[in-house]
Amino acid sequence: MSEQDRDTHQHHPDYWKIYVALVILLAISVVGTFSGILWITFIMAFGVALVKATLVAENFMHLKWEKVIAKWVLGIALILMVLFFAGVSPDIMKDRGLQWVNNADLAATARGIPDEEEPEKGAPASAPDSTKAAAATQTAAAAPAAAPFSPETTFKTVCAACHGPEGEGNGPGAAALNPKPANFTDPAFWTDKTDSVLEKAIRQGGASVGKSSAMPAWGSILTEAQAKQMVAYLHTLKGK
């Protein structure tokens, strides 16, 4: 026991008194929860927690008699946490700001508290995107279904990027991919493929049918019926 420690530490407050005070404070914070009024519960809970924390830090950790350098070390860490909270909370805590709306938060909140708002009308609208919050855009979310769905234009605009305009699997995106996208003109492709497997591949992505997961899930753009029409269109490409 090097003697440096002995001379710096003569101060031992009456630990019993502090311990009893802590237990009483704990009881107060628990009782506070029955007050029913939210802000009283908060004041009780966090105020008491702060008092208890200072009691433990001052007396049990002997911060009261510690050199000031140690207080600076802990103080800087706490100040940095306040700074972190100040810089981050405008983006995370709030669900809207200048020029941006956090639809996901709004949707989660809307879904989460059904009793406050009237429950969402009927089946979730076939909005092209599940993250489209009902609250954000009141207009009937126009799915591509509104305009007559033509599998050919959808193939040309969406699928051609990787499968190529004629479906040979040589689109500009194909150069990037390994394994290569499916080649619908090759009869060998069709030998072991059923329509339902193709629909699943289209709507839930390649990985869902054991194929390359580079094929994204287009289910958010194409409904069941549309996927069937797409598969029908793919048949017309066979042997071209």
């Binding site: 070390v73 802990l74 800087i76 860490a77 706490l78 940095l80 946490m81 972190f84 909270f85 981050v88 909370s89 995370i92 805590m93 709030k94 669900d95 956090n102 938060d105 989660a108 909140t109 879904r111 989460g112 508290i113």
Partner: peptide
Amino acid sequence: ASEIVIFGGLLLSYVMHRIGHPE
């Protein structure tokens, strides 16, 4: 001090999310 910043990061992230999600 290093534990303060670790737990501080985690608890503050929780507080921010909790305020952002009343549900």
